[in-house]
């Protein structure tokens, strides 16, 4: 049966080690850098969420930030305005964004790719409009400010401690996705993505599966929203304006339909805006160009590209070993 490859384990261990050491390297008190590290975490979760939908199930969401917003605001409203305990607020955020995901599921069952893309953009617009207009509920244009860091047994967590929690959540989400895509459900998702008529003829209930994946994807995006709210301790609708495109870029550039892809994509694309600070106004355009270049030159993303290079290199190494035979063959040509 499927065994986890040695290279996978090594990559994972290295990544985790780097992630564990990162706060120490940047300095535990360096809140600016710690917040960037946290942003890797929530973007990583967001990409995993979009990847389940887009990469594994073939359903397009162009407004994925909507679910993140729903999660973030549910958490912010409950925790800040109503004093609900952070754990309960987080669970509520998961439940509400799961429900929102089911709405997307209904759209997936009825619409083809183009209309789905438009609908999801519209859904994002609708959610942000509601958030801006319904000030009594959401704080409106003023947003929600001073969202508290978590307090465990009377001890208020520092930023870097929260980062470790966020990291643990990412790892759990990654494990969740790993097990999900390798399960019977995951096989059915990939099958439906590739040939929906054949998958239904093999006994897969396509519509039910779309609802399930959309719900899960919504909930994971909502979870990313919770981490976002706590990390930034401030929420306003316009903060999410670039998130949908950014997430799409990360997932596509990293390599959708693979587990590693979104992780690489997150690392690359979350780092990019920090490096491109001077060009912040043109970020959307840069994302666009990066997506186009990726789709043309690396259709399987960074992950697919790296894997192909590694395979080529190992094939070359093998060829070198078998050189005498090869050389004779070449002379014959």
């Amino acid at each position: 049966m499927k065994k986890t490859a040695k290279s996978t384990v090594i990559t994972l261990v290295v990544l985790i080690a780097v992630a564990l050491l990162a706060p120490v390297v940047v300095g535990l008190k360096n809140n600016y850098m710690i917040n960037i590290l946290c942003s890797y975490c929530y973007f990583g979760i967001l990409c995993c969420s979009l990847n389940l939908l887009l990469g594994y199930t073939g359903q397009i969401s162009m407004g994925h930030a909507a679910f993140m917003m729903i999660g973030a605001y549910t958490y912010g409203i409950l925790n800040k305005f109503h004093g609900v305990h952070f754990l309960i607020a987080a669970l509520a955020a998961l439940a509400v964004s799961f429900a929102a995901g089911l709405l997307l599921g209904a759209a997936c069952c009825k619409l083809n790719a183009i209309f789905l893309a438009m609908t999801t953009v519209g859904f994002y617009k609708a959610v942000s409009t509601v958030i801006i207009n319904e000030g009594w509920l959401t704080g409106g244009a003023n947003g929600i400010s001073a969202i508290q860091k978590w307090t465990v047994f009377g001890y208020k967590l520092k930023n870097w401690q929260f980062y470790y929690i966020a990291l643990a959540v990412v790892l759990l989400v990654f494990l969740f996705c790993y097990r999900m895509v390798n399960s019977k459900t995951g096989r059915a998702m990939r099958a439906m993505c590739s040939a929906p008529i054949a998958s239904s003829a093999m006994g897969v209930n396509n519509n039910q599966l779309k609802f399930l994946v959309c719900g899960i994807s919504g909930a994971l995006a909502g979870l990313a929203g919770v981490l976002y709210a706590v990390t930034n301790s401030y929420l306003s609708a316009d903060m999410f304006a670039k998130v949908s495109v950014q997430t799409l870029t990360m997932t596509v550039v990293g390599g959708m339909g693979t587990l590693w892809g979104p992780l690489f994509g997150t690392l690359a694309i979350t780092t990019l805006p920090e490096l491109l600070r001077p060009f912040a106004d043109h970020l959307d355009g840069i994302y666009g160009v990066v997506i186009i270049l990726t789709v043309i030159f690396m259709p399987n993303g960074i992950y697919g590209f790296v894997r192909r290079m590694v395979q080529k290199a190992s094939a070359k190494a093998k060829a070198k070993k078998a050189q005498p035979a090869n050389a004779a063959g070449k002379k014959g040509e």
């Binding site: 999900m180 019977k184 096989r187 990939r190 590739s194 040939a195 006994g203 399930l212």
Partner: peptide
């Protein structure tokens, strides 16, 4: 066929209705 999947995975999807494992 499910072109993005391995041969044995294709056949495993065929066994979908006979596989008793929930998510």
């Amino acid at each position: 066929l499910f072109e993005n999947m391995s041969i044995v995975e294709n056949v495993m999807v065929g066994g979908h209705t006979r596989t008793d494992s929930g998510l």
